[in-house]
Design a binder for these strands. Structure first.
Length: 885
RNA sequence: GGGCGAUUAGCUCAGGGGAAGAGCGCUACGCUCACAUCGUAGAGGUCGCUGGUUCAAAUCCAGCAUCGCCCACCA
């Protein structure tokens, strides 16, 4: 009891042990519950490609805070966990593994490859779950799902087929983004644009049957091999005479019509544009408008095709170099200039993507977007912070069709089947029997798989076994809160809203909380290539999960990015240690008796007791209000300040006298209140730092108490707020601090018990000080504390004025007069400054007339106080000065 | 070209119309029987700039500057 509790909190075995215990108790599991309200969060499923990074730790800490808080409030709280099969990312990793053995995926074949990917995914999945557990995440593991598991695959097929039947899924030959390294098409959102220093080449295209030529500008000369027209603006008077004429493409001598199209900006370059329908999205549109030929000159492997004539087989960038050289040699290059442009890169492998025409599957987005815009703007779904609504709206209003097919092996196969004998296509939930057209029975399934986000966007309901109508869906859907980062607002958040409305006819979640991004200490994104990442598991190892969680929340503000340095985790570690030691203190006082949990009778409460209980009520109220608004940092900060700055610094210090005295009743009362406040503080902290709070709770709990994680969350009791106690304590604190400051500044050693005289003018205050003189004596370390109504300043004493009371600290030895003069002088200056401000305000008639009465009244009080204090300070200053002479 | 953030103490950041805050760092003192992963006290900010609204602006509005993100079909 007390003796075997270590001085320094050691989270070592505590965290794993408690997590296992919670799991054994089945505390994480949630079920539809007739007489309880539900609260549900679906996890943003981490990709199975890698270990979790600090961003995950942060994101999941927030989710766990919300879930634990709601669970303790009595909600049936479900945190639905799972992982994402991460199509391209996983395929890339597995291919990389294969490459170590010198093999490509084609060497092992599709079936074997998918098998390998499954193995990989399963291992990673297990690691991720393990990591989430290490962080304390209270997920309902019984319900864990995977975007590629059987149930979710059914949902995906179901959705694809029904969208197809509605005409919202279609197949088209269209210009798309091709990643030559991943050898698949990717969606517009998967292309990252980066500013690159490049060149703008001006190339001469001779006019047919003329010595004249025209000049076009391009950043990608190699695409000219696929040019099928030259375009000018219809408004450009300079070039109207050329429209209808024919230009000749250098090198390959293809004849190109000169056309006019509103897309062309006369201001840019020469005002003439080469048109390459097969390799540029704009040119593609133009080409379709004008019925131009589409000539593919860059192949899927990024090498030039046969159509590129002499350059066939050459890599696209090599071709660019060679072609520019050739043009120059042959006199076709007019000039080139440095040019900064935005180049699209694959978000998975960072290769420069190539726009290319290809037959792909698309989802028509406009009809899905409209209702989804509505629910965010009418407040059915609320974004925190709100600023993201604008971003959301902008994207949604300009939404383009979603390219969902991928030329990968790892993913949901598209449920389209082709009759082997006549080629007829059928989209169906399972392979068709006989072909309607030819009666054939042999079918080949579409080789393509679906974009990984095509399963993610169903996550809020597919995880609850949709399209089956389950009790879970009935009870937990719509879910309550989505916690995610803003970088997937389009990939995921927006699409989930669309899917929810389309398939469930209901929003998927009520609130979206966007957490900030974790950056390094210099504000750079953490990334593998920079090597500036901080591994959360290592930090857990080093500082504990509680410390990691606590520190991250301390550093966070709603939606702002966090700059993180490793030392920052000391914040959480130190806090845990403080908490631990406050418990140790309480534990040491209880001696042999059982822990008192009931508050003592009111008549046994001292001022300090009334004060701390009152403060606690406010803290509980503020904490809950803050979390309601997703102000997580604010909730944390409120408890932090209360626990450290009030409970430890003042309350525990104040009650020590009762423990070290011989009044057993007083000591018992103090102990019960200390335990009571500590226990509620632990509960407030539990969502943030679940382990240490449970650990301490276990030490303090009675037999029939619930464990902290399933205990009832504190509620504020307004009957216990006590303005009187708070203002009285504030006065005593001011007096104590004033004495301490004086002692410190006059070099009175902390160990020396001093004697102090207060010259008070107001009776109420004199009584207050008299009744609570022990507070002052104990906390300012005094041997004598006299409260007088009208005494002169004793010889050689330091003085301070606080709340219109003079405080004298007689200094037995020689007082350093110079130093005391300096002190008083500074005080006088400060007070004068404050008085001046108050005077200025009050002499402003507008202020007196227009400001609210209580503000004016407050200002008057300030003025009076400062005047009074100033008088006393000046008198004392003169006294000291006269001694000096 | 649009949109969004940031700009407050040496550093990292809270706050958000009525007397400038925290943590770290720094200075002084203290191992006083919960805690040196600690305590007590202190030094340190004309709250980016310029205007405006208001009795009152760090806080609201407008413009500007610097930095950083996001979006956009100018080759």
């Amino acid at each position: 009891m007390g003796k075997d509790i270590p001085k320094v909190y050691d989270p070592g075995q505590v965290e794993d042990r408690l997590y296992e215990y919670w799991e054994e108790q089945n505390y994480f599991h949630a079920e539809p519950h007739a007489d309880r309200e539900s609260y549900c969060i679906v996890i943003p499923p981490p990709n199975v490609t890698a270990v979790l990074h600090m961003g995950h730790a942060y994101n999941n800490a927030i989710q766990d805070i919300l879930i634990r808080w709601r669970r303790m409030q009595g909600y049936e709280a479900l945190w639905m966990p799972g992982t994402d099969h991460a199509g391209i990312a996983t395929q890339n990793v597995v291919e990389k593994e294969l490459l170590k053995e010198g093999k490509t995926r084609h060497d092992v074949g599709r079936e074997k490859f998918v098998e390998l990917a499954w193995d990989w995914a399963e291992n990673r999945r297990a690691d991720i779950v393990n990591q989430l557990k290490k962080l304390g995440s209270s997920c309902d593991w019984e319900r864990e799902r995977f975007t590629f598991d059987e149930g979710l695959s059914d949902a995906v097929t179901h959705v694809f087929v029904s969208l197809y039947e509605k005409g919202l899924v279609y197949r088209d030959n269209y210009i798309v983004n091709w990643c030559p390294r991943c050898s698949t098409v990717i969606s517009d959102e998967e292309v990252e644009h980066e500013t690159k220093q490049g060149k703008l080449w001006y190339i001469r295209y001779p006019l047919k049957d003329s010595d004249d030529y025209l000049v076009v500008a391009t950043t990608r000369p190699e695409t000219m091999l696929g040019d099928t027209a030259v375009a000018v603006s219809p408004d450009d008077e300079r070039y109207q005479h050329l429209v209808g004429k024919t230009a000749v493409l250098p090198i390959v001598n293809r004849e190109l019509p000169v056309i006019k199209d509103a897309f062309v900006d006369p201001e840019f370059g020469t005002g003439m544009v080469k048109v390459t329908p097969a390799h540029d999205p704009n040119d593609f549109e133009m080409g379709r408008r004008h019925g131009l030929e589409e000539i593919k000159v860059i192949g899927d492997d990024a090498a030039m095709t046969e159509a590129a004539g002499p350059y066939a087989g050459m890599d696209r960038f090599e071709c660019r170099k060679q072609l520019v050289r050739d043009l120059e040699e042959q006199g076709y290059l007019e000039k080139s200039e440095d040019y900064e442009n935005r180049v699209g890169h694959c978000y998975r492998c960072h290769t420069i993507v190539e726009p290319a025409i290809s037959e792909q599957w698309f989802v028509k987005m406009k009809p899905l977007a409209e209702p989804a815009i509505e629910v965010v703007n009418n407040g059915e779904i609320t974004f925190f912070p709100e600023k993201w609504v604008k971003t959301y709206n902008h994207w949604m209003q300009n939404i383009r069709d979603w390219c969902i097919s991928r030329q990968l092996w790892w993913g949901h196969r598209i449920p389209a089947y082709y009759c082997e004998s006549c080629g007829t296509m059928q989209v169906a939930r399972s392979q068709p029997d006989t072909c309607d057209e030819c009666g054939g029975t042999e079918w080949t399934q579409d080789e393509n798989v679906l974009d990984t986000w095509f399963s993610s966007w169903l996550w809020p309901f597919s995880t609850m076994d949709w399209p089956e109508q389950t009790p879970e869906l009935e009870y937990f859907y719509p879910t309550d809160t989505l916690v995610t980062a803003q970088d997937i607002i389009f990939f995921w958040v927006a699409r989930m809203i669309m899917a929810g409305l389309e398939f469930m006819d209901e929003i998927p979640f009520k609130n979206v909380y966007f957490n900030g991004i974790i950056r390094d200490a210099q504000g750079r994104k953490m990334s593998k290539s920079l090597g500036n990442g901080i591994d959360p598991l290592e930090m857990v190892e080093q500082y504990s999960a509680d410390a990691v969680r606590y520190s991250l929340i301390v550093l966070s503000t709603e939606g702002q990015d966090i700059n993180l340095a490793e030392e920052n985790f000391e914040i959480g570690r130190n806090f845990s240690n403080k908490l631990w030691n406050s418990f140790r203190f309480v534990e040491m006082q209880r001696k042999e008796q059982a822990i008192p949990h009931e508050l003592p009778d009111h008549d046994r409460w001292e001022l300090a007791d009334r004060w701390i209980i009152s403060r606690l009520q406010r803290v509980i109220r503020q904490y809950n209000a803050a979390l309601e608004k997703f102000r997580i940092h604010e909730a944390q900060d409120t408890v932090h300040k209360f626990f450290w700055g009030e409970f430890c610094d003042w309350y525990l210090e104040l009650i020590k006298a009762r423990f070290y005295g011989d009044n057993e009743q007083a000591s018992e009362a103090a102990l019960s209140i200390a335990v009571n406040v500590l226990r509620q503080t632990l509960q407030l902290l539990h969502p943030i730092i679940p382990f240490i709070t449970e650990e301490i709770w276990q030490h303090l709990k009675l037999e029939d108490d619930p464990d902290i994680m399933v205990s009832r969350f504190p509620e504020s009791d307004s009957a216990l707020t006590d303005e009187d106690a708070e203002s009285k304590m504030a006065l005593l604190q001011d007096v104590i601090v004033a004495i301490r400051t004086m002692r410190s500044e006059m070099n009175v050693p902390p160990s020396k018990r001093a004697s102090v005289i207060v010259n008070s003018v107001k009776n109420g205050r004199a009584d207050l000080l008299r009744i609570h003189s022990s507070y002052v004596m104990n906390l300012a370390n005094l041997s004598d504390f006299a409260i007088e109504s009208n005494v002169d300043q004793p010889e050689s004493s330091a003085t301070a004025v606080v709340r219109e009371m003079e405080i004298f600290l007689p200094l037995a030895d020689l007082i350093d007069l110079r130093k005391e003069q300096e002190r008083l002088n500074k005080e006088i200056e400060d007070t004068e400054g404050r008085l001046q401000k108050a005077n200025a305000k009050l002499s402003n008639t507008d202020f007196v007339e227009k400001a609210p009465d209580h503000v004016v009244e407050k200002e008057r009080q300030k003025q009076a106080t400062y005047q009074e204090e100033l008088k006393k300070l000046q008198a004392n200053y003169e006294k000291i000065s006269s001694m000096d002479s």
